[in-house]
Design a protein around this nucleic acid. Structure first.
Length: 949
RNA sequence: GCGGGCAUGGCGAAACUGGUAGACGUGCUAGACUUAGGAUCUAGUGCCGCAAGGCGUGGGGGUUCGAUUCCCUCUGCCCGUACCA
């Protein structure tokens, strides 16, 4: 009987579906284990061979844990809101829901075709109203809570209001907008409802805010920082500009410290943690206010200029102040004489694209004509604007210390400003800045003679005592923009109440009114007046009266809590029932790409911490263990078409010429002038081109002729991104068809360590296929259909093979070394074939060991051996018994001066002294010792002997 | 610039706490069998050398009886980030 992969796999996939084999329920009699794949976006292109890498690994873990007695939650679903479906809708008029539905169908089909053990009854889709109802519900909670720094957690807005009534803003220590004013209880109580609501927005976790955002005209929406790469949109590569817009924002910065400290409690890859730390960018320093009052400045109602610095110790070296061109105070600070120059610079800076800014870093700027005062020495400091200062970081203002900072130094040189040395250890500051913290301060008033640490402490005390500054921690992390001017996303459950003052106030729609469903619209484009597409919806008003929010939520909203929905996917009362959350707790094993480091994995940790503060979920961190699977790159193949070929040339080279062009094999191509063309990797095997398939591949190659080497056409190879245009995309379905899902699963794991990036390479897939055939032949004679197994007692040697295999596989899976497990299985198959072992007592546990990797063939053989169909996932992982591996002897490699010269067998428990004596009497050893006396003999029991001369 | 990672045969790789480097697979060479196959089996295959032997884990140095593994240094490649005050 032959191994017929197609038949076997289809039968079992059908069986699993019919019998709901992988459905799980809460079961308190067994420990739980939660294995999660990162939420895929169902793109129209379907899965290519790179996508399943992580899914195969997580499926192996799931199946392994089941065999180990765990109740395994292993779900799959779709992050189904998103730009591509909407772009397609704009082009075709087709509702994105329909496209999305079709794409999901393709994905599910492909995933089932690979034999993954998902509990499909738990599938969720973020674009389903029954799902986004709860995304909106969480949004409501965010709106109704604020971050209380004293309690160090999120608290209800009602608590904040109570505090305001008691003691005004001074009574609370909370995360809020930078421009939040100070007020007392009396003031709060006398405010009108509108004023109070406006104040509360400065504290809520989500709030509309006028801010500079990344506007992407090409996509017609704003983007968050993590969606912008190199100044263009990550999706589509469209230009991105800074634009002042009113947007919903999420106060993720309130959790900045906890997002950093939580990283120490999870088992995640260190590079990923480091990326998050850098993205959050915590810096410790001080804020200092430079007053404007007594200098030669225009009359102002401004108290001063606030700067953040990490080097407050350099404050006596300040010789200028620089504001971002967009800074609020620029207008007020500009003197009439400087007005034109400043305005010109602002215009120039605003029109400079992000790409330009990054490309050329020339010193530029303009003087405002005004001065501020250094609080430490009362010296006037000229105020400039320059685009090297970013409006979005700190206060958008920088104190210029040219002796200690290279950018400041460049600026000072360019504008002829003084460069003052502040530390006796600074060297060569007429050549460049020296950022040293060594030595003692000079030219520095109250800190002269002090060291770095002493000076910093002293200055912060002084600033605080004089009420002109304080120690401060600053983050690079910005509050996250939460609005998208698009249709295909969750509607924001907010309407705008009109207080009759022309300033609409956002209010939440009632919880009972959720979900707020997406209305139908005629076209998926902005309105005439530039409103988002939702502005097209007819009669779409809250209680027929108030306007709804017209932007929708960003892609990361639905994916920031989805792992809880899998615990209880159908629940219409809560996002997940407490009993389900109490049982499943959190994700034990999470796998996905490292590209989610600063997007999904940061936002979802933020929402999780928020839900934790509300007492809704049990863990501060939701994913205990996380692995990044390496990216599978494309491996392109090339053919070489001979250029400018004339008949004479063709004759000269004795090569046939034809209308389809002449293609020369890789090894001979340097003898010709050629054009390199991508060729579909699916018609190439082991880099040899299938000539007939090539002629059929494209009509214009039908008459192609070839110049072969050794009768074969060898293709060129390059590693590139996997993409259609490079003809290097391999669809897993093709491989499943030809070799089977089990072979594909084994092969993807066999390719190398899971976390390494590697090019997809079909060379060698036949090795894993042959391995499965070899396994099959342990059970069946491929000629006669006869089963081969028997019930004989296994020999010691056979048991040794089995138990060594059990031990290695268990150890390797536990350390996520998936590739070496495949080798171990291959070695076992080779050895048992060698031993002609067809004993059920050995083969049955072997099939269980194989089942996480190759579940279909394992099910088939398991059932053939007489077990109940489909029960292999309920089987028990074989228990390793060390007694079978006990050896009575050990073959010692014997080294002379570190080089192995001979191997000698000794009893496993032979005393080192005996071994030493025997080794020194050995002929070969004596020969190599060349008559010298050994200085030392090292005997490491059960390892090695080394004779040192 | 900064942060992180990686470097082993023709190729993918293994060697987990320092102990016979190259397991396993592929490719290649030679052979066997045959209802010529994308099959199976046997032998060989790191490099140099007829051999004895020597040399070998990106380069250089160090620690050690012994280093792919630990330390220092240099080089190359990959990923992330970028005027963050």
């Amino acid at each position: 009987m032959e191994y017929k992969h197609r038949e076997i796999e289809q039968n079992w996939q059908h069986f699993w579906e019919q019998n709901q084999t992988y459905r799980v329920e809460i079961d308190h009699s067994r420990p739980k284990y939660y294995v999660l794949d990162m939420f895929p976006y169902p793109s129209g292109a379907g899965l290519h061979v790179g996508h399943p890498l992580g899914y195969i690994a997580s499926d192996i873990i799931s199946r392994y844990k089941r065999l180990k007695g765990f109740n395994v939650l292993h779900p799959m679903g779709f992050d189904s809101f998103g730009l591509p479906a909407e772009q397609y809708a704009i082009q075709t008029g087709q509702h994105p829901a329909i496209t999305t539905q079709e794409n999901i169908k393709t994905f599910v089909g492909q995933l089932k075709n690979m034999g993954f053990s998902y509990d499909w009854s738990r599938e969720v889709r973020t674009s389903d109203p029954n799902y986004y109802k709860w995304t909106q519900w969480i949004f409501r909670q965010l709106f109704e809570h604020y971050y209380d720094k004293t309690a160090d957690k999120a608290l209800p807005i009602a608590h904040l209001i109570a505090q305001f009534n008691e003691g005004g803003s001074g009574a609370v220590n909370a995360a809020c907008d930078d421009d939040t004013p100070v007020f007392d209880a009396q003031t709060w109580r006398t405010m009108g409802e509108f004023e109070q609501q406006k104040m509360l927005l400065k504290y809520r976790f989500t709030f509309p805010e006028e801010s500079h955002v990344n506007w992407c005209a090409g996509l017609g929406t704003v983007l968050s920082n993590d969606e912008v790469k190199d100044g263009v949109s990550e999706r589509g590569g469209f230009a991105v500009e800074r634009k002042l817009m009113k947007q919903w924002a999420m106060r993720i910065t309130a959790y900045a410290d906890r997002l950093i400290s939580g990283l120490d409690t999870v088992d995640w890859p260190e590079p990923l943690k480091e990326q998050q730390r850098n993205w959050i960018g915590r810096s410790v320093g001080a804020s200092v206010r430079f007053s404007l009052s007594n200098a030669s400045t225009p009359p102002l109602g401004v108290g001063g200029l606030e700067v953040f610095t990490t080097r407050v110790d350099t404050i006596y070296g300040v010789s200028f102040m620089v504001l971002a061109p967009e800074h609020d105070l620029v207008q007020a600070l500009t003197t009439p004489q400087q007005k034109d120059e400043v305005a010109a610079y602002q215009t120039w800076a605003a029109n400079r694209s992000e790409v330009d800014r990054m490309a050329e870093r020339k010193v530029s700027g303009a003087f405002t004509g005004s001065y501020c005062v250094n609080p430490l020495n009362d010296q006037p400091v000229p105020i400039y604007i320059a685009d090297y200062v970013l409006a979005g970081y700190g206060t958008g203002a920088v104190m210029g210390v040219p002796s200690g900072d290279q950018r400041d130094w460049n600026f000072a040189k360019h504008f002829g400003l003084p460069i003052v040395s502040i530390l006796d250890a600074q060297k060569g500051i007429d050549q460049q800045a020296d950022a040293t913290k060594e030595g003692r301060y000079i030219n520095s008033g109250i800190i002269n003679g002090l060291t770095y640490k002493e000076a910093t402490d002293r200055l912060i005390k002084w600033l605080e005592a004089n009420n002109v500054g304080k120690g401060k921690v600053q983050y690079r992390l910005r509050n996250a923009v939460f609005s998208r001017q698009r249709y295909w996303g969750e509607p924001v459950p907010v309407y705008f109440k009109d207080y009759g003052n022309g300033q609409p106030m956002p209010c939440l729609i009632d919880e009972a009114e959720l979900p707020l469903e997406l209305p139908k619209i005629d076209k998926y484009l902005p309105t005439q007046t530039g409103e988002p597409p939702l502005g097209r919806a007819q009669n779409w008003k809250y209680h027929q009266q108030y306007d709804y929010e017209l932007s929708t939520m960003p892609g990361w909203a639905g994916s920031s809590w989805y792992w809880y929905r899998y615990m209880d996917p159908q629940n219409s009362e809560v996002f997940a029932d407490k009993t389900a959350i109490d049982y499943w707790q959190r994700v034990d094993f999470y796998i996905g790409g490292s590209e989610h480091a600063t997007g999904h994995l940061l936002y979802s940790r933020f929402w999780n911490k928020f839900l934790k503060d509300l007492g809704l979920v049990p863990h501060e961190e939701y994913a205990a263990k996380l692995i990044n699977q390496g990216m599978i790159q494309g491996r392109s193949n090339f053919v070489y078409r001979v250029k400018n070929q004339t008949p004479a040339d063709a004759d000269a080279n004795d090569a046939p010429a034809g209308g389809g062009g002449t293609f020369v094999s890789f090894g001979l191509k340097d003898q010709y002038e050629t054009t390199k063309l991508h060729v579909d990797v699916n018609i190439v095997e082991n880099d040899f081109l299938d000539l007939d398939a090539f002629k059929k591949w494209r009509a214009d190659f039908a008459d192609a002729t070839f110049i072969l080497e050794d009768g074969k056409y060898l293709c060129g190879v390059e590693v590139e991104k996997m993409s259609k245009s490079k003809f290097n995309v391999v669809n897993p379905d093709t491989i499943v068809e030809r070799y089977g899902a089990d072979t594909l699963r084994l092969y993807e794991m066999f390719l190398g360590p899971l976390t390494d990036a590697k090019p997809w390479n079909m060379n060698g897939i036949s090795g894993t296929y042959n391995f499965l055939r070899k396994i099959w032949r342990l059970f069946f004679d491929d000629q006669t259909d006869q089963p081969k197994w028997d019930n004989a007692q296994p020999t010691a040697q056979e048991l040794k093979v089995l138990h060594r295999t059990i031990k290695r596989i268990e150890e390797d899976i536990e350390r996520y070394s998936f590739n070496t497990v495949v080798s171990t299985l291959m070695i076992a198959a080779n050895e048992l074939t060698e031993l002609k072992c067809h004993k059920k007592a050995i083969l049955e546990p072997l099939v269980v060991l194989l089942s996480p990797y190759a579940p279909h063939i394992a099910e088939e053989l398991w059932a053939k051996l007489g077990n109940k169909s489909g029960s292999i996932s309920a089987a028990t992982f074989p228990v390793f018994d060390p007694q079978y591996l006990v050896e009575n002897t050990f073959e010692y490699p014997v080294q002379i001066n570190g080089k192995v010269r001979v191997s000698l067998v000794f009893a496993a428990d032979a005393p080192p002294a005996d071994i030493e004596r025997a080794v020194l009497e050995n002929e070969t050893v004596i020969k190599w010792m060349e008559g010298k006396q050994p200085k030392k003999v090292i005997v490491v029991p059960r390892r090695i002997v080394n004779v040192v001369l």
